[in-house]
């Protein structure tokens, strides 16, 4: 029974992390039709900047509570600066080209950012787990669990809710929806499509950086964290359907529990299992479970 509970809790955490990470990815695809490999880099940038800023703050004698705000700030900084930069300088030039070519461009950006991060932060791991430790442990079903992952889950759910509500309620969200529906008609109706693109990409970037910043206290931040994000994020988004929030949620749950189960039950199958599921879904339903679905609620 306890193992089941462990798998369930682990699955929930895994799913939350995956959701946070893939929400932005699927949003960017839904609006811009771009499969953004550099998403992992944005995550990593959030992790690196967040960790280093918290480190500096702690050394300067600030208390731990401030570190959460700092992580948020770092994420926003990364998302709001790097996001628009990438979109305007690189992506904007080739929207009309084939999707795979655009994918390759985002891959090029990923490669460049990998080395940029090495040059700026070096290759030594950043281990800044004060924010993690500070939250202590809680008892869930008789088992002691670290409390921090619950924070991550909370953030994931909140972000999901915000995006979903934002799409339906805000002016920007409605414009985004119309652009997703039909780019050309939206443009003809006077919607500033390039601005929407930049905006949507920025939101996605912020989400990625947020994932990275708040995951940082749980891990040691090293070159290569971006890769894991890309590999798993793609699997989730492919399974759930490119461009669908519900798909990202469902895909995250699926992959999250699968990971948790395989970690406890059959460790070697981890990667193979995930890609097997992805392959199976793509074979029988190439557009993913909720594929090409609208980003707003039906």
């Amino acid at each position: 029974m306890t193992q089941l509970a462990l798998i369930a809790v682990g699955g929930l955490f895994s799913a939350s992390w995956l959701f946070l990470v893939s929400l932005g990815l699927t949003l960017i695809y839904g609006v811009l039709r771009v499969l953004n490999v550099a998403h992992g880099s944005l995550y990593a940038l959030g992790a690196y900047l967040g960790s280093s800023m918290v480190l500096v703050a702690l050394e300067k004698g600030h208390g731990v509570p401030v570190s959460y705000l700092i992580l948020l700030g770092a994420a926003l900084l990364v998302g709001l600066s790097v996001g628009p930069f990438l979109e305007r300088v690189f992506l904007r030039r080739i929207y009309q080209k084939e999707e795979v070519l655009v994918l390759l461009l985002t891959f090029a950006i990923f490669l460049m950012l990998e080395d940029v991060m090495k040059l700026v932060w070096g290759v030594q791991p950043y281990v800044v787990n004060a924010p993690y430790v500070a939250l202590g442990v809680v008892k869930v079903g008789g088992v002691r669990q670290p409390a921090y992952p619950f924070l991550l889950t909370g953030i994931a759910v909140t972000m999901g809710g915000l995006v979903w509500a934002g799409m339906a309620r805000t002016r920007f969200g409605k414009l985004v929806t119309s652009v997703i529906e039909d780019r050309e008609i939206s443009a003809a109706l006077g919607v500033n499509v390039p601005r929407i693109f930049t905006g949507a990409f920025t939101v996605g970037a912020v989400l990625a950086a947020l994932g990275g910043a708040f995951t940082a206290p749980m891990i040691s931040v090293v070159p290569g964290v971006a890769v894991e994000v890309i590999v798993l994020g793609f699997a989730v988004v492919a399974i759930g359907g490119l461009g669908s929030i519900e798909g990202a949620a469902l895909g995250s749950l699926l992959v999250g529990f699968l990971r948790s189960a395989s970690v406890h039950l059959f460790p070697e199958l981890d990667l193979v299992a995930i890609y097997l599921v992805m392959a199976l879904v793509l074979l029988f339903r190439p557009q993913g479970l909720f594929g090409r679905a609208e980003m707003r609620r039906v």
């Binding site: 461009l105 891959f107 090029a108 950006i109 990923f110 490669l111 460049m112 950012l113 080395d115 040059l119």
Partner: peptide, 8 residues
């Protein structure tokens, strides 16, 4: 970095 730049 070089590879990415060349590719881009």
């Amino acid at each position: 970095l070089l590879l990415g730049a060349m590719l881009a």
